[in-house]
Design a protein around this nucleic acid. Structure first.
Lengths: 343, 343
DNA sequence: CACGCATCTGTGAGCGTTCACAGTAGAGAA
DNA sequence: TTCTCTACTGTGAACGCTCACAGATGCGTG
């Protein structure tokens, strides 16, 4: 190490410095940097040594200027802020994506578009080419962002099946419907017969699909679906609490509830506790997600695990493929029933 | 709008296109873009109209190439991964910083440096100038990252007072010690006399300062500090549970606990519940943070609120000032006691 | 009238990289 | 030998922007 041991920023070495040090031309250094094709072993070795010696790091701005690529991707949240930081799933997903991208040496830009104003600004930023692609998280069907981005030709992968989209768009999702089926079957296997459900918002894929799974199993068992056993929530704790309260009023003989998210299930537990119902003795409760919330609930939640690590890895894989020119793809991943104390 | 209504990416307009459209030179457009000094009102108006018409967005790569600035900042987490997504505080902080930066149109790059390997890669990335500054979150004193960055001359703001630093470094922190004092005083005011504490890791500022506040109040009240009433945790739920179990064994006459984080307090509640102690009747529990965890606990936690929104806003303000050439600064913000069911 | 000064404008250079192209050398085929 | 082909290397010319500078104009002052 020959360089600046003392503080303060020196002018960093350029590709030119490396070329001089290695006794080759800029072009050769550039070729080594980009895969090393058409470079003699001797030259490659010399360049690598020079890179180590000078501490050279490629200037991404210069590279981006010419390639038109930014070598970064955006992680876009269109939810209103509060949902973001209340929902543990987002964090797991964010972390997974960051790490999967880091393996490709691609930084992740976190973008929050809560208000229409922010949305406009961020759309400009994205469509100006400052990111190569976008990981889009949980947009409601009313959300125009996905369509706008797709129309602008920006590579895009959604988390969760986008509902109501006309044309093809990449997405990665857990098999919501199948997970819901597993849970409802489990509740029935416990001997429960008045199985209710607290759904997610019905303009989200999770809301729709998990409810569909619930209906399917009941129908399959020849049980008529009682609409009084269905209440919709908004994925928040408070929403779950309110929904459970309604459920108890409409159907006091309730003996099990399938709740479409763990966070709502926490609210459900609160409501049941206040109503003096014991869990799981009087009413069995099943959640969805297997988020950290499932473990902090009392009793711990029986739930459906979403494979977040695989979801994030697949989102990144599909996005990079799409940036590389491949066609959009849909990936559906299996869920897993996790049995704990609440059911 | 005259441009590409159809999908697919066209070559985006450049500053040259805007200049031609406005009938001025590149230089004038550039001046308008950068504050509009030394530009006649007529020219400025023409340029703005041309920008609107062409849909021009500045190419940050080209700009960065010459200015040497990236117009982005990094949000660096040096914690091992699990802490990140288990701790609700991080999310609040992350969101706050993202929004505060967005107001300056500066994107935030999320960086996770869990393993030494990742750390090296990210340090290279940062020191190569790909971000203008770094928001550093909660580094243990053993963590060399802060010193390395400072030595490299990278503008830096830490969240929480860095302990054991030789020279000055910017940081923003809640007044941990004062918050702890408030809580312990509150517990004493309830008539409790065997007040224990579960500390954070003692190589973190929060761990050290909150314990110091605890000791101060007891000393001030003339109560001798019983070391059996002190157990250290690691800010995790499990750590809190283990610490509480130790505390109960060492000091069965415990009648209150000040826990240095809400998450640990959840673990403490679990341990107390298992031991058959009622909260708050038998043992009062006070947390710290006022994170979402405080509300999901049963009973809800009496805790010390950290002003996360202000903390994030101040971190961004201080960082931008430092990037602008100002000297490092330390900011300490007041906490607030929040009384709920657990004490 | 000449001069300084402030305000405004255009122009060339250059930031650090990649890309296309034009070379060079050596090996093998005709 | 000569020609072709492959492997490798160097060299301008961009990419889109900012910066320094030079020029132009108008106004007040000596």
């Amino acid at each position: 190490m020959t360089m600046n041991a003392t503080g303060g920023r020196r002018r960093p070495p350029t590709i030119h410095d490396v070329a001089r040090e290695a006794g080759v031309s800029r072009g050769t250094v550039s070729r080594v940097l980009n895969g090393g094709h058409y470079v003699s072993p001797a030259a490659e070795e010399a360049v690598n040594a020079a890179i180590r010696k000078t501490g050279y790091v490629v200037n991404r701005h210069a590279r981006s200027l010419i390639t038109g690529r930014s070598d970064s991707v955006g992680f876009l949240l269109t939810e209103p802020q509060e949902r973001f930081f209340e929902d543990p799933n987002f964090n797991v997903l964010l972390r997974g994506c960051t790490q999967a991208l880091a393996a490709h040496d691609i930084p992740l830009l976190l973008m929050l578009a809560g208000t229409p104003d922010e949305r406009r600004r961020i759309m400009r930023y994205i469509t100006a080419g400052h990111v190569d692609g976008v990981l889009l998280v949980s947009s409601h069907s009313g959300d125009p962002v996905a369509d706008e981005l797709r129309d602008a030709g920006v590579p895009l992968v959604a988390c969760g099946k986008p509902i109501g989209r006309a044309s093809k768009m990449s997405y990665v999702a857990a098999d919501d419907r199948d997970g819901a089926r597993d849970m409802v079957r489990h509740l029935l296997s416990l001997g429960r017969r008045r199985v209710g459900t607290v759904t997610g918002p019905l303009d989200t894929p999770g809301g729709v699909e998990r409810l569909a799974g619930y209906r399917e199993v009941l129908a399959g068992e020849g049980i008529e679906v009682d609409e009084r056993l269905i209440a919709s929530g908004d994925y928040s704790r408070a929403g779950g609490e309110a929904a459970a309260t309604r459920l108890l009023a409409q159907a006091p003989d309730l003996d099990a509830v399938f709740v479409a998210s763990d966070l709502m299930a926490q609210g459900v537990l609160t409501a049941l506790h206040r109503a003096g119902r014991r869990v799981p003795q009087d009413i069995a409760v099943g959640g969805f997600d297997d988020s950290p919330a499932a473990l902090s609930a009392r009793p711990e939640l029986t739930t459906v695990r979403q494979p977040w690590d695989r979801i994030s890895a697949e989102m990144v894989r599909v996005l990079l493929a799409q940036i590389g020119g491949e066609d959009p793809a849909a990936v559906i991943l299996p869920t897993e029933l996790v049995i704990r104390g609440s059911a």
